[in-house]
Amino acid sequence: MSDQDGNGRLSPLRERELIEKAQEGCARSAHELIGSYQDRLHAFVWRMVRNDHDAEEICQDAFLRAFQALDNFDFAYRFSTWLFTIGYRLCLNAMRRRKDYSGDVDFSALRSDGRVDETLGVFDEVANSDEAKRLKKVIWDSVDELTPPQKATVLLFYKESLSCQEIGEILEMPAATVKSHLHRARNRLKELLERQLVEDWSVVRLGVA
């Protein structure tokens, strides 16, 4: 039986096994757990804080805290829920600490116009059209305008494909509150995006694998 599902994620069984071994102090299992989750956690955290250095620090901190408290892990939950809960809290801390978190100092590359954006590079070689590039940037800029809980909700819903219930476990709020964040986020995105002159939103999809 495979250790991973179709998305390359750990099967619950394998995850449990790794956690139990890690609880006993098996460094290799800890290593495998980290390896299985670091990209997902980092993608989420990086989107939240939009800063490479902070994102790495937060991920490291999140894993350390998760492992140090591993004895208290409740197997009724996924390890990812636990990890993302810690990660989200650390994001809020970092954003609060960084007074200008909504400014564009730290991610000027993503906001720059008129030149190729390095972080967008790889994907956009597939993506191509200038219009598609522009729309993607417009969308991400709009996502960055959302409040932290709205942004987290949107990321977890669309990127992690989690249910509102699961998102609520991570953000420590009822599913109904998650929904209202999601709905408000959509209204806000609509408001921001409708100002853009877009002939055809479907061109974006050509650039999305």
Partner: peptide
């Protein structure tokens, strides 16, 4: 528009990744 948003957020562009030594450092 919402569909485009959802797809872009889900898949594009890939975020920078942690380097390969990350897990060992943790």
């Amino acid at each position: 528009m919402f569909r485009a948003c959802g797809e872009v957020i889900a898949k594009d562009p890939p975020e920078p990744r942690l380097d390969s030594g990350f897990a060992s450092r943790v």
